[in-house]
């Protein structure tokens, strides 16, 4: 896989902040400007952005296409639902910790098997393993609720139990909770991909043999990347459940993994910000497509095919190319 050096070149932290700060400011102010519905929709988008960030660590920085990330998302979500059902927990912080532990355990186990393979076999294996969890959630209905799923009530944030309107809670308190965790995740991921470990992953992706010659432990690096990726996705699953109020086996099905791949490609998986943009845009796209027609899958499928045919670098890639063109024209003009 060839990756444009321009897109992946590590930008200086200062320049990254320069791009990020206005976006963060908008995200902070938004709940006071936009209506509750759009705010909650954005919260969904940010949650999916965490999952897509984790997924992208494997896809672009490690060169492994997972078609089974629904597994870790689902494990995070079901971990929360189980804590509610069996342990009567209602603190969001405990949910987050529980989901991280559960998704780390599952992704460590699955990753142990999967990272021995690359390319198509990796994709099929991750898909097959995620389907194991789906079939268990589907069949063991006395534990998981089967297709009815498990209900999750609104949690308490930082020890404060929310009172009153659930919608208002989701659009204000919970939105900020998600936003803070999202920013933390983005920062952590930024550090990871620019750390020596991140560089080692990219070296493995570009040339496995050479990487092992300079002493990179290929198998272990891939495994760690897999677990980190799984934990990010699991955390997203935990944050998603209170928004949705319900967890069903659908989020463990491999078609949900396909949606995670879709949003990453939509945003452009060769850039750091691509998956974030893609997740937020995909969430709007899907919500409106579902509301607009029963044949929303058809619509999204056509968009996906058109996208891969004509816009393989995604939204962010396209924007980058356009700004590059403008800059060059300006340079020649002056």
């Amino acid at each position: 896989m060839s990756v444009s050096p321009l897109a992946l070149a590590a930008r200086s932290p200062r320049r990254t902040l320069l791009y990020a700060l206005p976006v963060i400011a908008v995200l902070l102010v938004l709940p006071w400007v936009a209506d509750q519905y759009s705010t909650i929709l954005l919260a969904y988008g940010l949650v999916m952005a965490i999952a897509a960030l984790g997924f992208n660590l494997l896809l672009v920085y490690t060169g492994l296409l997972s078609f089974g990330h629904s597994a870790y998302f689902g494990v995070g979500a079901y971990a929360v639902a189980m804590m509610v059902k069996y342990l009567k927990v209602s603190s969001m912080e405990l949910f987050v910790v529980g989901a991280i532990v559960a998704s780390a355990a599952v992704s460590a186990l699955f990753g142990f098997v999967c990272v021995r393979y690359t390319r198509i076999f990796f994709s099929i294996l991750t898909l097959a393993l995620s389907q194991v969890l789906w079939s268990l959630a589907f069949k063991f209905f006395w534990i998981t609720g089967g297709t009815d799923g498990l209900r999750v009530p609104t949690p308490s944030l930082l020890g404060v139990t929310p009172g009153g309107d659930k919608i208002a809670f989701l659009a204000r308190g919970y939105y900020y909770y998600v936003l803070v965790l999202f920013l933390a995740c983005a920062a952590v991921m930024w550090v990871i991909v620019n750390s020596p470990f991140g560089k080692a992953l990219q070296a493995i992706r570009d040339n496995e043999t050479r990487a092992s010659f300079v002493g990179v432990q290929i198998w272990r690096c891939r495994w760690v990347a897999f677990v980190v990726s799984g934990v990010f996705t699991g955390l997203a699953g935990a944050l998603w459940v209170p928004l949705n109020g319900l967890t069903t086996p659908d989020i463990l099905h491999w078609q949900f993994s396909g949606e995670i791949v879709f949003m990453t490609v939509l945003g452009g998986f060769r850039t750091f910000a691509g998956p974030i943009v893609g997740a937020v845009v995909f969430n709007y796209l899907k919500t409106y497509a579902v509301g607009y027609t029963v044949y929303w899958q058809l619509l999204l499928g056509v968009i996906l095919v058109t996208l891969v045919l004509s816009l393989p670098t995604g939204i962010v890639g396209m924007v980058e190319r356009l700004t590059e063109r403008v800059r060059r024209r300006r340079a020649t003009a002056s």
């Binding site: 078609f67 390319r119 994709s123 899958q297 058809l298 999204l300 499928g301 095919v305």
Partner: peptide, 21 residues
């Protein structure tokens, strides 16, 4: 290969709904 998987995944979504249609 990623693109090949993606385009057939898009095809999957399209065919699924075409049959519903």
């Amino acid at each position: 290969e990623e693109y090949q998987l993606l385009v057939t995944f898009g095809l999957l979504m399209i065919l699924e709904d075409l049959m519903r249609l």
